[in-house]
């Protein structure tokens, strides 16, 4: 279908009008190679990592549910596999948060700043 989407109902919220960058500029920015790189740098990092930590958490839940014997294995003193596995969830959460932030500062922020400066300078 070549027709444009129907006009939005009512008046657009007031805040749209304080974003003066024209529609064309956003389309152009979206299709620019720089933005393509930014999108890829975000998605190729955040999406697989999200799937990974959810799978890692589900593995922990499933082992707690269905592998009680293994989880109950004592490692030292009264500390068993279950406790270490739980603490590993804390460790992995802290680590992923740190890793993502480092990635964002190095790879995402500079690209985002450049595109933002160009678009806001244009307006």
């Amino acid at each position: 279908m070549a027709t444009a989407s129907p006009p939005p109902e009512g008046t657009p919220p007031a805040h749209w009008s304080d974003a003066p960058t024209a529609v064309v500029a956003y389309r152009e920015a979206q299709e620019s190679p720089e933005f393509g790189e930014l999108r890829k740098a975000h998605r190729s990092f955040a999406f697989p990592l999200t799937i990974a930590f959810i799978v890692w958490y589900l593995l922990y839940v499933l082992l707690s549910n269905y592998a009680g014997g293994f989880m109950g294995t004592k490692l030292f003193g009264n500390v068993n596999v279950a406790l270490v596995f739980g603490l590993a969830q804390f460790a992995s959460t802290f680590l992923i948060a740190w890793w993502y932030s480092r990635h964002a500062e190095a790879k995402l922020d500079p690209k985002a700043d450049a595109i933002k400066a160009r678009l806001e300078g244009d307006a």
């Binding site: 960058t21 956003y26 920015a29 999108r39 595109i115 933002k116 806001e120 307006a123």
Partner: peptide, 12 residues
Amino acid sequence: AELEVRSLTGTH
């Protein structure tokens, strides 16, 4: 286009 560009770059 506007949402994607703004959400990833902070433009406006």
